[in-house]
Structures are given as structure tokens and as C-alpha cells.
């Protein structure tokens, strides 16, 4: 067993971090906020060219041919950079919606709230909605997150996204982990620089302990996300091999495996949402009055974390899914 990232995986993560630092640094982020432009089409195409959306598409279909473990590392970096746009929905649409893989199309999804809709993000920017025949009509809603424009859809039922729910939740959790790690860095940096009572505020235990709690939440959530990605990928691979000549035992084992993966993903989403939201809150607190200003970036992390917490799988859904999985393993099969 070697749960640590391979050299290739670390290189991939470092490459994405470098790309985003150069292409979407703080100046670009603040320009987007000031300009109210949530999706930069040129950047979207560059992300497409870099393989961001086609990452998990097989090489035979023009994709990069990597798996969920690599995808969560890449999305973690996007979360760290606060990259806006329907990243997860467009990634999920690669291979299904023309232009998604290449980043020439922007694809959103009915992923908000418990059953998806009627609020939908990036509708005005989108070329397609995942699983829907066309773009539904909608009224704009003033959004809490300046970089996540919202519409309330007024016609046509929400498209069914259940087939995408697990991967969507996992990749959104990865974005949350990146944000949680970033707000931790921002808090630690500020606590080391800001002086009061003649010393950096980070020398006070009250501030230290907030920061330590942030690290604990981020590390636990990050491990849960990586583990869910690895188990989901392994289950996918096993499915592929066992496709023909399956007997009843094999089917039962497969169903148990699927339930276990669903539980891991629910835990990852629950813990990552909490890490992102609570770390942003604590980061804001460490920044004191500055944390309450528009100028500090921390509110952008908090607002985006709130959006993501409503996407694909909510806390209530995750806890119920985990309770169901606990009940299944407690009354039948042994937990892993």
C-alpha cells in the first residue's frame, strides 16, 4: 500500500499550480471581481488545451486518459486559485457535449440544492446545460458570490444529473479542499505579519489554535477526498473487468462496492464542505477588521465555499447517505 501521490501525480499538481499562478493570479482574480466577468472564454480554451476538461476522457477519444485521483489533484489547485466558472460541469460534460473537452464550450448543470434547480449558476455564460436539450429560460438573481452569477430557471423542468452526482460531488469536494488549504495559508501568513501588543498575533495561543484547527480540518478532508477518488477509480476498473459473465455473488459484491464508494464520496463532500466554509470563517476572524473588507480575498473564498456546499450533495444528503451506509455495514457486511 502506498497512499502517497506518485511522482507523476505530484508533477501534475505542481504543473497545474504553476499554470494557474501565471494565468489566474491575484490580479486576474480581482480584475474579474471588479469587471463582473465570471467566465473568461480565452482562459477556458487554454484550460481545455491543457487537458483540464478532457483529463479523464480516454486517449482514444482525444482525452488525457487519466483518472479520478489525478482529477482531484487538479481540481484542488483550481480551488486554491479560486478559479471561477462551471469547472466541474464542463469537465463532466467532456465527451458528451461538443466542445466541452476542448474548452470551446461552457457547460453548466442543475447541481444546486437537494434535487438540483431551480437556481442554476453561469446560465448566461453557458452554451449548454448538462443533460438538458437546450438552454432553459431564467431570471437573473443577485448572487452572494460575485464570481458565481445565478439564474432562477423559469421554464422547463431541471435536467436529471443523477448519473453525474458522485463524480460531481467528489470534484467539488476537491475544489473545497484547495480553498481550505489556501485560507489556512492566508491566515498563517497574516498571523505572522500583523503585530499587536508588540508581537505577531500568531504568537498568541488564541490565534495559533484557530490556525491549528484549520490544518486539522483541511488534512482530514483532503485525505477523505483522495481516498474516495482512489476507491472510486478502483471500483470503476473492477466494473470494466467484470462486465461479462457475472454471477449473483459477483453482482452482490459489486453492489456492496458501489455502496462503499458512495459512502466515501459522501464523507469526502461533507468534510470538505465543512473544511472550506469553516476555514474561510476562521481565516476571516484571524484577519480581524481587514477580514470584513471587500479588499481582502477571504470573503471570496467563503462565498464560493457556500456555493459549492450547495452543489451536487448537500450536508443533509451526505449525512443521510452515510447513515444508510453505516446501517448497511452494521447489519450485513463488515466495514472495510
Amino acid at each position: 500500500m502506498d497512499f502517497q501521490p506518485t511522482r507523476d501525480q505530484r508533477d501534475l499538481r505542481a504543473g497545474v499550480r504553476e499554470l494557474l499562478a501565471g494565468r489566474y493570479g491575484r490580479d486576474a482574480l480581482r480584475a474579474a471581481v471588479d469587471g463582473g466577468s465570471a467566465v473568461d472564454r480565452e482562459l477556458w480554451r487554454e484550460l481545455g488545451a491543457a487537458g483540464f476538461f478532457a483529463l479523464r476522457l480516454p486517449e482514444a477519444e482525444g482525452g488525457v486518459g487519466l483518472g479520478l485521483p489525478e482529477a482531484v489533484l487538479v481540481f484542488e489547485e483550481a480551488g486554491r486559485a479560486l478559479l471561477p466558472g462551471p469547472l466541474v460541469a464542463t469537465h463532466l460534460a467532456a465527451g458528451a457535449v461538443p466542445g466541452a473537452a476542448a474548452g470551446t464550450a461552457v457547460v453548466t448543470a442543475f447541481d444546486l440544492g437537494e434535487r438540483g434547480g431551480p437556481l442554476v449558476s453561469y446560465l448566461a455564460e453557458a452554451d449548454a446545460v448538462l443533460g438538458a436539450a437546450g438552454l432553459p429560460p431564467g431570471e437573473p438573481v443577485r448572487s452572494a458570490d460575485p464570481l458565481t452569477p445565478l439564474h432562477r430557471v423559469t421554464g422547463g423542468g431541471p435536467a436529471d444529473v443523477s448519473a453525474y452526482r458522485e463524480a460531481g460531488a467528489l470534484l467539488t469536494a476537491a475544489l473545497q479542499v484547495g480553498s481550505a488549504l489556501r485560507t489556512l495559508e492566508l491566515a498563517v501568513r497574516y498571523a505572522g505579519e500583523r503585530e499587536q501588543f508588540g508581537q505577531p498575533i500568531g504568537a498568541f495561543q488564541a490565534v495559533k489554535h484557530l490556525c491549528a484547527g484549520m490544518l486539522v480540518r483541511a488534512e482530514v478532508a483532503r485525505t477523505a477526498v483522495y481516498a474516495a477518488a482512489v476507491t472510486a477509480q478502483a471500483a470503476d476498473a473492477a466494473d470494466g473487468q467484470a462486465a461479462d459473465g457475472q454471477d449473483a455473488d459477483g453482482e452482490a459484491a459489486e453492489a456492496a462496492e458501489a455502496a462503499e464508494v458512495a459512502g466515501e464520496i459522501a464523507a469526502a463532500k461533507l468534510l470538505a464542505d465543512e473544511a472550506a466554509v469553516r476555514n474561510a470563517r476562521d481565516c476571516l476572524q484571524v484577519h480581524g477588521g481587514m477580514g470584513f473588507t471587500w479588499e481582502a480575498d477571504v470573503h471570496l473564498h467563503l462565498k464560493r465555499a457556500w456555493v459549492r456546499a450547495e452543489q451536487w450533495v448537500t450536508a443533509a444528503e451526505a449525512e443521510e447517505a452515510l447513515a444508510a451506509e453505516l446501517s448497511r455495514t452494521a447489519t450485513g457486511g463488515e466495514a472495510r
Binding site: 497512499f3 488534512e219 482530514v220 478532508a221 485525505t223 477523505a224 483522495y226 481516498a227 459512502g263 466515501e264 459522501a266 464523507a267 469526502a268 461533507l270 468534510l271 443533509a316 451526505a318 449525512e319 443521510e320 447517505a321 452515510l322 447513515a323 444508510a324 451506509e325 453505516l326 466495514a335 472495510r336
Partner: peptide, 17 residues
């Protein structure tokens, strides 16, 4: 029930950690 579900998720994550 939700509290038990959350604990199941947390201990699963602690095993992974």
C-alpha cells in the same frame, strides 16, 4: 441518525488519514 452518519464519515476519514 445524521449524527451517526457524520461520525461514520469522520471515522472513515480517520482510517484513511
Amino acid at each position: 441518525r445524521r449524527k451517526l452518519g457524520r461520525l461514520y464519515g469522520e471515522f472513515g476519514a480517520l482510517w484513511r488519514l
